[in-house]
């Protein structure tokens, strides 16, 4: 049995959080390595939050919101997309493994997708950590 990871998930209230809820209600299986923080919109996620997670020892961070065009506040996730694009670029430049930071779009009806996303993220973060331990 592998060690459990600590992954922080920032989920928007209107899509991804409901999607995660649906995954639970539908009893889809996915790894329990993720801790969910509900935010009103993915646009609420200040990049400082993500830095703070890493600082406090999180192995990975996932930011998840509505699909572009479906934002409850019309355009919040478009801003998120730009911000996270730049942040991920900067992380890469500083040598932080890009597999530790993920952004995804999961709608309220995509319970299965949520389970798949978390599975993929956990795998990626695990791989990143194993990679860094080897060195």
């Amino acid at each position: 049995m592998e060690k459990k990871l600590k992954i922080v998930g920032f989920l928007c209230n209107w899509c991804s959080y409901a999607g995660a809820d649906l995954a639970g209600v539908s009893r889809f299986q996915y790894p329990a390595d993720i801790r969910v923080i509900r935010v009103p919109c993915s646009g609420r996620v200040n990049p400082l939050f993500i830095l703070k997670c890493f600082q406090e020892g999180a192995d990975g961070v996932l930011v998840s919101g509505c699909h572009p065009g479906d934002c409850h506040y019309q355009e919040g996730n478009y801003y998120t997309r730009r911000r996270m694009m730049m942040l991920k670029d900067l992380f890469c430049f500083f040598g932080i493994d890009k597999r530790r930071f993920h952004i995804s779009w999961v709608s309220a009806s995509e319970g299965k997708k949520w389970a798949d996303v978390v599975t993929a993220v956990v795998e990626d973060v695990g791989a990143a950590l194993r990679g860094s331990e080897k060195q």
Binding site: G69, Y79, R81, K88, I103
Partner: peptide, 16 residues
């Protein structure tokens, strides 16, 4: 500043 604006067709290749 570009982070205070957006385009609907911004690139998406970094999304999981």
């Amino acid at each position: 500043s570009p982070l205070t604006r957006f385009r609907r067709d911004d690139r998406e290749d970094f999304i999981t």
